[in-house]
Write a protein that binds this DNA or RNA. Structure first.
Length: 634
RNA sequence: GGGGUCGUAGUUCAGUUGGUUAGAAUGCCGGCCUGUCACGCCGGAGGUCGCGAGUUCGAGUCUCGUCGGCCCCGCCA
């Protein structure tokens, strides 16, 4: 799958031709290259008899006293090195620890039939060594580099340079490089222009917490690292560049998750002028599907991806990032319970709550304990008062069975698709809460019953997000997503409709339950923008102060435009089939936003603080930690 | 900010209802070994059981606190 294996490296030869092209060329050279004529994965039977030089890391050593085998490794593969008996070379190699870097020169020899190693690409040959140079002696390792033994996360991060030598992580990082190269190629081919935008920019009032950078020249003022190049890309549209993209670093000071690295991440940020939503989709679908097709042999949703409205996604899947590999659907059964004998639910439904149901195929076989565990889980994890369920096993059983008529059960089974041997679960709550609870259970049942489709990337668009939502604590109307989205229906909708009913040209692209990206058709009209912000409680002056640059730009002729920004780390994570985003980042921080290798964050010198006009005021019980970096300020 | 879980040799792990001197594999050090590719054989060293209190005659084991890794909630326009 990874074609670098067994391929020659191509960057170490100063000449325009690769030396791997043939032994003759090597023989013609008066002097060999200082370090290597071939990579460690390059040699084959055709090289037998050639004088070659290899450099690499000692991956493994098999010392038989008067016979010594070394597995010499670089990123391209492994070659077995054999040292002659009673030689200085044998002594030198025997004394070198694993992971030492050595250069060996010798003759490629054929292995006898019995000693061929079919596991290695180079397994038909070995290198009979004549000279050895130890380039760099390694001390004893904190963990094994060879093999795939699990290693503690902290040790891996502290010695990330060793961890990256290990096969799986190394493969992920190389995959990342190829994915990014392919993205660039595809975007250029689709007519996009690549830009760089500022890293030191202004703090924006919306969104996540900013990372701040104090200004030396302007006491008391701060730059912010961009949470995304949102305003810059829109300004580039105003500038007339039509199609923008960037592999953009984004910085958000929010807490980590398995699919969310703390602090920083990369997006394929893109924006297009003179497009509607469908045109954005049609442009980016082939890029996404193409990337996933190119780097995986799993099934990939072909373009056009299915479109779900936000409302459908929440009702049918209980999530705005539905995993379409999971066959379970969620159904509204409020009407069945409204008139049922199950008083808890019927009263709640009459009170405006809803009942959502989902069926788990084959669940009737599970023990009573399994259901008890689920109820417990629903109470603690979903904060649901309980979990009602109905086991269809010849007759209907379970805690709510006695409250339901035969006809009720028939309707419930029919609607949820439950057959004999299945179980149906119910949540009763406010619409949104019930949906989320059912969505969480849907995911859990999918895992518990092994229902998730294997070897498939299932994409979909979630469209028609509401423009506004009501903040629960304050009751205020807020933007539910990006405040720069165009409301559907434009100014007229803003002026005439209930804000909570207004939809936005706002969309997400989702793959296997992971949100790859948000995007929107933007609001390019200053008048509509001021009105949109007014509804969310911002005065015209505030908007002008906070987004003045963009608002002003839109007054000088702005094209209708829109775009999105799929997360690059998440794409690679999906392609590498990894459960954690750290596995596709070369130098990730811990969940706690610490860089264990570089020691970030760290203290700085008094002088640095003084230059920045900053005085520390620490919480009383917190002594500043010893700085882990070298103090160069003395 | 909150919840869960883990922390024992360099590494990966075991360690019973609290009970003698805390074990294994691997790595490391020394010796032997000419066809291995997880090389093999013999020997050795290696532990503040994350840290600090407490309960107890006695704590790796129980309790509380704390630090760190991971997972989750909040947060992530």
């Amino acid at each position: 799958m990874f074609e670098y294996l067994g391929r020659p490296l191509n960057d170490w030869s100063r000449g325009s031709r690769r030396l791997d092209d043939g032994c003759e060329l090597i023989q013609k050279r008066l002097a060999m290259h200082l370090y290597r004529t071939h990579s460690c994965g390059a040699l084959r039977a055709e090289h037998i008899g050639a004088q070659v030089r290899l450099s690499g890391w000692i991956n493994a050593k098999r010392d038989h006293g008067q016979l010594l085998f070394i597995d010499l490794r670089d990123r391209s593969g492994i070659t077995q090195i054999v040292a002659p008996e009673r030689s200085d070379e044998l002594a030198a190699l025997s004394g070198a620890r694993l992971e030492s870097v050595v250069t060996v020169t010798g003759t490629v020899v054929k292995r006898s039939q019995e000693t061929v190693n079919p596991k290695l690409n180079t397994g038909e040959i070995e290198l009979q060594v004549s000279t050895v140079e130890i380039q760099s002696e390694a001390v004893t390792l904190p963990f094994p580099v060879a093999g795939d033994q699990p290693i503690g996360e902290d040790a891996r991060l502290r010695y990330r340079f060793l961890d990256l030598r290990r096969e799986e992580v190394g493969r992920n990082i190389l995959l990342r490089s190829k994915v990014i190269a392919s993205i660039r190629r595809r975007m250029h081919e689709a007519g996009f222009v690549e830009f760089q935008t500022p890293i030191l920019t202004a703090s924006s009032p919306e969104g996540a917490r900013d990372y701040l950078v104090p200004s030396r020249l302007h006491p008391g003022q701060f730059y912010a690292l961009p949470q995304a190049p949102q305003q810059f890309k829109q300004l580039l549209m105003v500038a007339g560049f039509d199609r923008y993209f960037q592999i953009a670093p984004c910085f958000r000071d929010e807490d980590a998750r398995a699919d969310r690295s703390p602090g920083e991440f990369y997006q394929l940020d893109l924006e297009m002028a003179f497009v509607d939503q469908e045109e954005v989709f049609a442009t980016i679908e082939p890029v996404l599907a193409g990337i996933f097709d190119e780097f995986s042999d799993w099934i990939v949703t072909p373009a056009p991806f299915p479109r779900l409205t936000y409302k459908e996604a929440i009702t049918t899947y209980g999530s705005d990032k539905p995993d379409l590999r999971n066959p379970i659907h969620i159904f509204d059964v409020s009407d069945v319970f409204r008139e049922s004998g199950f008083k808890t639910f019927s009263a709640a439904v009459r009170d405006g709550q809803v009942v959502r149901a989902l069926a788990a195929p084959g669940a009737a076989k599970r023990s009573r304990n399994y259901f008890d565990q689920l109820v417990k889980w629903a109470r603690s994890e979903l904060r649901s008062p309980g979990l009602a369920y109905l086991v269809i096993d010849g007759e209907s059983k379970g805690p709510v069975a006695k409250f339901l008529s035969k006809e009720d059960v028939r309707i419930l089974s029919e609607r949820t698709g439950a057959k004999d041997g299945d179980a149906i679960f119910f949540f009763c709550a406010q619409e949104y809460v019930a949906a989320r609870q059912a969505g969480a259970l849907r995911q859990r049942l999918g895992d518990d019953f092994d229902l998730i489709e294997k070897n498939a990337y299932r994409f979909c668009w979630v469209v028609d997000y509401p423009m506004y939502e009501r903040e629960e604590k304050t009751g205020n109307i807020e933007f539910s997503h990006n405040p720069f989205s165009m409301p559907q229906g434009g100014l007229a909708a803003l002026n005439t409709k209930d804000p909570l009913e207004i939809l936005a040209y706002q969309y997400d692209v989702v793959c296997n339950g992971i949100e790859l990206s948000s995007g929107a058709i933007r609001n390019h009209r200053p008048d509509i923008m001021l009105r949109a912000f007014e509804i969310a409680g911002y005065s015209a002056d505030e908007v002008k102060e906070r987004f003045g640059g963009m608002l002003q730009a839109f007054a000088y002729g702005a094209p209708p435009h829109g775009g999105l920004a799929p997360g690059v780390d998440r794409m690679v994570m999906l392609l590498a089939d990894q459960q954690n985003i750290r596995e596709v980042i070369a130098f990730p921080m811990t969940q706690n936003a610490l860089d264990l290798l570089m020691g970030a964050p760290s203290q700085v010198s008094e002088q640095q603080l003084k230059d920045l006009h900053i005085r520390l005021e620490l919480p009383p019980d917190e002594e500043p930690e010893e700085s882990k970096t070298i103090d160069c300020s003395e």
